[in-house]
Design a binder for these strands. Structure first.
Lengths: 224, 224
DNA sequence: ACCTGAACACCGTTCAAGT
DNA sequence: ACCTGAACACCGTTCAAGT
């Protein structure tokens, strides 16, 4: 309920009833959507966005085709915060920082991480990130064709890492449903899983993230 | 509308009005849910399941805690169809076939692929697959700790591949939204992406799948 | 032309009331 | 004890009617 905000009401005393409602716009809609989806609580919805912007849900359709278009806009807007480094840095460190930044942005909320799976970002930020990745992989000596395919794989893997982290599937948590299930695995039926119990649950989120980035980089560099 | 099925009606003539409605059960609910989510059309819902099973939505709660529990059950049930190969086969070919089978099962419908991201499968089939992966990676000479972490990464990557395929994000399709966006990239702002245009869109789904499996295997094997 | 109230066709979940 | 009708609090989208 933004209109109940006591500061706002006393601040702009001259229009208490309609407190400087900004005109509806694509940007305002996307910004409010990103605000909602970034909150830990729940996801975004057209109806909640409309309410927050003081209109009915139908009004949004003047600025946005449908939910899926809005989702794409929101995802790209979220990627604003991804830092991409600068040419000249050692490529390995730069790549790791870029990927970590990407994963961290998506991990801000489960709903945002989820969005990265449902939606392909093709906005300016996705392009900016792709551009940087191509630069880095070029410096690393990766062939252009390989690098082009690697973009998809790297970003998808970061989305997966973010989702795992955001959902608290972090196997580090010993009381997670996964941890409990793995602990109860029968040694007779699944001897290898049973034996690997400790390994499966080992490591911090950071260690596992670093490991998977390592696997990806080695795998991509090892291409003939 | 299953009750309009002419065969069923004439087959069991003695109870035309209530055509041998099977008793509600967890299995029946999961089976119907899987049927719905596997259809290309749309996803599953508790209400549609209830209607198909000739009850109200509230009745399902006697057999299932909530939607997320049902989703986990459905995912594991879907993994029934994943073939895991047999010990003794050359590990490389076996791994590739297992992963392909896994991805193909999930790619049966967009909704199913999506489910693999939202839900961690911890049922018998997920364990069966994890057991096989540990067997294969052991034969490949991968250290136990590495193999344990690799399970997560491999299954997540297959879910990503399946989602890409199922959603028709297949960049092979030259008229996809992604293809159009990539084609229109400005050479000034994003020179590398522009130059890589053709490479980004190149390859069949199969080629890209094989490539990403290759990257993963090389990356995992390259671990010290 | 731009905007929107109200309706439509859906959701998951709860709970009092039935057998 | 087992089951469920009806209600609750939500969805995205459409469309006739308003300015």
């Amino acid at each position: 309920m933004p209109s109940r905000d006591p500061f706002r009401a006393s601040h702009v005393a001259s229009r208490r009833n309609r407190p400087a409602k900004p005109p509806l716009s694509r940007d305002a809609i996307v910004a409010e959507a990103l605000r909602q989806i970034s909150q830990d609580g729940g996801g975004m919805s057209l109806r909640k966005i409309a309410t927050a912007l003081d209109t009915g849900p139908a009004s949004l359709y003047a600025y946005v085709d449908d939910l899926s278009e809005l989702q794409a806009l929101v995802l790209d807007h979220a990627l604003d915060e991804v830092t991409v480094g600068a040419a000249g840095e050692p490529w390995r460190a730069r790549l790791e920082r870029l990927l970590r930044s990407y994963a961290e942005v998506l991990a801000k909320s489960p709903a945002l991480a989820q969005l990265a799976f449902q939606t392909v970002a093709v906005g300016p930020n996705a392009l900016r990130i792709a551009e940087a990745l191509l630069e880095i992989l070029d410096e690393a000596g990766v062939e252009p064709a390989t690098a082009a395919w690697a973009i998809d794989m790297l970003t998808m893997s970061m989305a997966a890492a973010a989702a795992g982290h955001a959902y608290g599937l972090d196997p580090a948590a010993p009381d997670s449903p996964v941890a409990q299930a793995v602990d109860r695995v029968s040694a007779d039926e699944y001897p290898r899983v049973h034996a690997a119990r400790a390994d499966i649950m080992s490591g911090t989120g950071d260690e596992r993230f670093a490991w998977s980035v390592d696997v990806l980089i080695r795998g991509i560099l090892a291409r003939p």
